[in-house]
Design a protein around this nucleic acid. Structure first.
Lengths: 200, 200
DNA sequence: AAATAGTTTAACCAAATGGTTAACAAATGT
DNA sequence: ACATTTGTTAACCATTTGGTTAAACTATTT
């Protein structure tokens, strides 16, 4: 093999382009350019735009899922899970700013395709977490709350700022520096808000 | 004029298609089909895809902005604003499920274009609200908090569920009925959570 | 070194897509 | 009634875009 990293370069370029522009907006030529190879190579290594997109989607989903699974499956307390998820998720997304938006967008545009992932092994399963909440309520650690609403609050508070960056920054008139420092603040602010609202 | 509602029909169809598929994914033919007219009519009333898109975007922005302005400019107390925004915004979005996602997506894809709106008359301005928060802190109604973080929390908690519907429903395993009833619950849950976290 | 298998490119292709044109139809003004 | 403006359509056009092909080049095997 001339260069065993060609396939890898293609995937990297595809990730970059697909995550920024989405399936519909991405152009095979642009991916080829970014990977510095001929367009035909895309089809040599990946059969089609759809297949290449699927590789990118899979990679994104597999990178994202562990953060959720940490909340769903680890042995930490609910308080610890909230604190740790917020911190690690915000750090993660600051490194991968296009990823959550990409996942959300493509799942919305393509529900049948997305269901393939939600039915799979790597798909996070909220059952254990639900049980944990019920246990901690019974133990008198937590107020009676709906686990689903708690998760929704947690995901909303951590993810929305990044998914809606443009809108948020437009409305609140934030420059990039202010935005970033606010996100750092939120690593502490969000757990405080949530824990305070559920601890007995 | 043969039918004075043709232009209106086009805009309606364009709203439907653009909001679901975005600028990149929308097809002029599909808009024409949905409006039940010839494709050439699109160019007769609106010069180009870009112009048609801009009309759709403007309409969406103008529908959305008042909800924010209600928070920024009305004379209600902070507590009332939180309660009323949550209720009216969730109701609004349940009627217009594609709108927030559309705005967010196109603003992210097209920041320069979006800045045209954030600089305009209809653009919400957070200054008065910031002042109000400072006043209410001084009056001893509110704990010392950052107005921007409060707004971010409010927007996150209300909007994210809709923007990330697919992902949220996939992860939490929610059918449409459960999702909707959760959104109704959130009209009460969110103000409670937020107000409790800021009232002195 | 010759044969073989794997990699890369330039040129090409068909379909899709945004947009145009020219002719026709309907309404409106005189 | 007739001319003019406005609305509508079918056919067409140029470009973009995803995808293919055949030949060339490189590495590996024998």
């Amino acid at each position: 093999m001339k260069d065993q990293s060609t396939e890898e370069n293609i995937l990297k370029a595809a990730i970059s382009v697909f995550q920024k522009k989405g399936m519909a907006g991405a152009r095979m030529q642009e991916i080829a350019d970014e990977a510095k190879i001929n367009k035909a190579m895309l089809h040599y290594y990946y059969k089609s735009k759809q297949k290449l997109f699927e590789a990118v989607f899979r990679q994104a989903f597999e990178k994202f899922a562990p953060h959720i699974n940490q909340v769903f499956n680890s042995d930490k307390s609910v308080f610890e899970k909230i604190t740790e998820f917020t911190d690690s998720y915000i750090s993660f997304v600051m490194e991968n700013p296009y990823l959550p938006n990409f996942l959300i967008q493509e799942i919305n545009n393509n529900p049948e395709f997305a269901d393939l992932f939600f039915g799979s092994e790597i798909a996070p399963n909220p059952l254990r977490f639900k049980k944990q909440i019920e246990d901690e309520i019974e133990m008198g650690i937590l107020k009676p709350i709906d686990p689903k609403q708690l998760l929704l609050n947690l995901f909303s508070l951590t993810a929305f700022s990044f998914v809606g960056t443009g809108l948020v920054r437009g409305i609140l008139n934030l420059d990039e520096k202010t935005f970033k420092s606010m996100m750092e603040e939120r690593k502490i602010l969000i757990p405080k808000l949530l824990i305070n609202s559920i601890k007995k």
